[in-house]
Amino acid sequence: MSDRTKIILLLLPALSVIGLLFFGGLAIGLMRSFNYMPVIGLTEPNLAAYVAIFSDREFYLSFALTFHIAFTSTVISCVLAVGAALLLRRAFIGRVIINFLFQLNLTVPHLVGAIGILYLFSQSGSFARLAAEWELIARPAEFPALVYDPYAIGIILQYVWKEVPFIGVIILANMQTIGEDYESVARSLGASKWQSFRHVLLPLIAPGLSSASVIVFAFTFGAYEIPALLGANYPAALPVLAYRSYTDVDLASRPEAMAIAILIALLSAAMLCAYIRLSRRGMGR
């Protein structure tokens, strides 16, 4: 038996699971999005579900909101993570403890984080009560709406809280591998601290930063639970919209749910490609 055959046979169990679950699920979803659901009598494939969602204003609002959540969370997380990594790579007393605390919430599930955001930032949460207690506002309900708000501030806060250490850990490891010699060369050649960061360190960490931010972007664009818990009812993020259609009492809504899900997959793939291309062009300059 050739080595190639052996490798294929060894990989077969894993490939079968991936093939069945991922591509199988995708294929079923795709068929349903084309209005093909024989169990409810839909046997003629067509584009009706796509036509319906593209002619619905709510879809566009949901898309804009979802993009805003993913893009803003990713950008803010990247900026804060790079800043944190720059601080944490230096030697200082207590660095081990600070580093531990920085990474601690990597172990906390997103849902727990979302509940924490509710407790802290909602209009009945701790900060609202404290602000009322300290007479900064007359009553807790006057606290700015940071949760269930149209700008998705609560959702973004939760994602930033969770993703900063995720990106930070990757970037910190990246920086430690690169070392400080390249920046020393730049400084010696006349670059200021900012120039050596902008023209030397940033391009060197760009591949790691791009990879990490792509993961965060893809996750935040397609995630359901946090927008469902912390988001406004209207417009809702795309995954929430898809779930609502899917769980509608009318089974005929399912093709629309599947069409939204397929579009989420396609749009996030397209945006990730664009994002990678832009970030590489921008940082490599």
Binding site: S184, V185, L189, L204
Partner: peptide, 12 residues
């Protein structure tokens, strides 16, 4: 200006 042992040319 310092020239380092391992060149350290900016690879990108």
């Amino acid at each position: 200006v310092m020239v380092f042992q391992n060149h350290l040319l900016f690879p990108y």
